[in-house]
Computed example of a mutant assay.
Amino acid sequence: MANLSFVASIDWGQYPYHPPSRQSSQFLIKVTNQAIVNNGGTYPIKELIKQDQYKWDSYTRVWSKIVSSKDFNLYEPFKESTWISEANEIEITINDHYCPQPVAIFHVDEGNLVRLNFDQRISDINHELQRLKWSETQGKNYLEEQYQKRSRHQLSDQQLDEFLAYLKTLPQ
């Protein structure tokens, strides 16, 4: 075995751990093919993706761009994107620029954008409702007043995000 005495010891105390932050100043949007692609993916619409300022990384085989988190809305980066309506079998991942864990994952099939991780958002809402000590009736009343819906399962992805964000702003 080779002599590894030339490798310096690392003092990990000099590199403190920084937990993931949802307060990042930037988000990284990555666009790639879904795991199984039959008739779609990014290649047929690569020119449209380029027009939207995404850059191709041939090593990771991902289109990406960085956006400011100021007034960031998970749907805003795609509102003006012409390629979404043409997309099929594509996955979009939004990450805090400094943390690899996704903030949101979307699939686009036949131009339809669907956010994944529904169960996690429902779990987060349940946690906030418990923190606030809201009864089931209080939650349903708010949903009826705000969205004209009786259940969280009837909310759109955007409405779920809005409801969760609203709950997080409320003091205990």
Rank of each mutant, 00 (worst) to 15 (best):
G40S: 06
Y147F: 15
G40M: 04
K140V: 13
Y17A: 12
V108I: 15
H107F: 10
H153S: 11
W134E: 06
L170W: 00
E162H: 10
G13L: 11
D119K: 08
N88E: 04
L167N: 04
T82F: 08
W83Y: 10
I45H: 03
L28N: 06
Y43I: 14
T82L: 15
I29P: 03
R22W: 03
Q130M: 13
L170N: 00
N112L: 13
I94A: 07
Q34E: 14
S21P: 02
L129K: 04
E145Q: 12
T137I: 12
Y17C: 08
L160C: 09
N95E: 12
Y75R: 07
L143Q: 03
F6D: 12
R115E: 13
Q53G: 01
A104F: 04
E136N: 07
N39L: 10
Y43M: 13
A2G: 05
K50I: 13
L164I: 04
L160D: 03
L4M: 13
K70M: 09
E162K: 01
F6Q: 09
A104R: 01
K140D: 05
R131P: 09
S68N: 09
V31L: 15
I45S: 04
V114N: 12
L132C: 07
M1D: 10
E128N: 00
Q138P: 00
S68P: 04
F118T: 10
P100T: 07
T60M: 11
R22F: 09
W56V: 07
Y75L: 15
H153M: 10
Y166V: 09
L164N: 09
Q146A: 14
D124H: 05
E144K: 09
W134G: 02
Q23P: 00
T42F: 05
K79E: 14
D119F: 04
L160A: 07
P171W: 00
Y98L: 15
D71Y: 03
A35Y: 02
L116I: 01
F6I: 12
V37R: 00
D11E: 10
P44S: 07
G111Y: 02
A165Q: 07
T32A: 15
R152Y: 02
K55Q: 15
V114G: 01
Q120H: 04
A35F: 08
V103K: 07
